[in-house]
Amino acid sequence: MSKWIQVLWPSFLVAGIAEIVFFTLIDPQELYLLGEPVHLSETATYSIGFFGFWLACAASSLSTLFFQRTAKDINAPH
């Protein structure tokens, strides 16, 4: 449980900051996806954007935990 908290909580905070910065600079009604305008409500666009940022930040935090393992942890018998 502790490892999940170490991954999800910091990534949640950074995703919130990324969302604020991104949508301060870009209007959600002017977004394009694959050359087509996005026809979603602003709330849906904000929500999808937040979860996308959270997923990317969680992947980053998870990879950090993965690469912090020692040789002893990796080679320990299960």
Rank of each mutant, 00 (worst) to 15 (best):
Val38Cys: 14
Phe22Ser: 02
Gln29Val: 02
Trp4Ala: 12
Phe12Trp: 15
Ala71Arg: 10
Asp73Val: 04
Val7Ser: 02
Val14Leu: 04
Ala59Val: 10
Ala71Ser: 12
Val21Ile: 11
Ser47Met: 10
Ala71Asn: 07
Ala76Glu: 07
Thr43Gly: 10
Pro10His: 02
Ala15Leu: 03
Phe12Leu: 13
Leu62His: 09
Ser61Leu: 05
Ile48Asp: 08
Asp73Phe: 04
Cys57Lys: 13
Glu19Ile: 08
Leu13Ala: 11
Glu30Val: 15
Val38Ser: 05
Trp9Cys: 09
Gly35Val: 06
Ser61Thr: 10
Trp54Glu: 07
Gln29Met: 10
Ile74Ala: 01
Asp27Ile: 04
Leu8His: 00
Val38Lys: 11
Gly16Ala: 01
Ala76Trp: 06
Phe22Cys: 04
Thr64Asp: 12
Asp73Glu: 10
Ile5Pro: 05
Val38Tyr: 06
Glu19Gly: 12
Phe23Met: 04
Leu40His: 03
Phe50His: 01
Val7Phe: 03
Leu34Gly: 01
Phe12Asn: 08
Ser63Cys: 13
Glu30Gln: 13
Asp27Leu: 05
Leu13Arg: 03
Ser2Thr: 15
Leu31Arg: 15
Gly49Ala: 04
Leu31Thr: 06
Trp9His: 06
Leu34Cys: 13
Thr43Met: 12
Thr45Met: 05
Ala44Thr: 05
Leu25Glu: 13
Asn75Phe: 08
Leu13Thr: 06
Thr70Leu: 02
Val21Met: 10
Trp4Leu: 12
Phe67Val: 12
Leu34Tyr: 10
Ser11Pro: 00
Phe50Tyr: 02
Gln6Tyr: 03
Phe53Ile: 06
Thr70Val: 01
Leu55Pro: 00
Phe22His: 05
Phe22Glu: 03
His78Met: 09
Ser60Phe: 15
His78Val: 12
Ser47Asp: 13
Leu8Ala: 10
Trp9Gly: 14
Ser63Lys: 14
Val14Gly: 07
Pro37Glu: 10
Leu65Gln: 14
Val14Met: 11
Val7Lys: 00
Asp27Gln: 03
Phe50Ile: 00
Gly16Asp: 03
Leu8Asn: 00
Thr45Glu: 09
His78Thr: 12
Val7Arg: 04
Leu33Thr: 15
Ser11Trp: 01
Val7Leu: 14
Ala58Asn: 01
Asp73Arg: 00
Pro10Trp: 00
Ile26Ala: 07
Trp9Asn: 14
Ser11Gly: 06
Pro37Met: 15
Glu19Arg: 13
Thr45His: 02
Lys72Cys: 01
Leu8Met: 09
Gln6Thr: 05
Thr45Trp: 09
Thr43Phe: 11
Val14Asn: 05
Ser63Ala: 11
Ala58Thr: 08
Ser47Leu: 11
Phe66Glu: 13
Phe53Val: 07
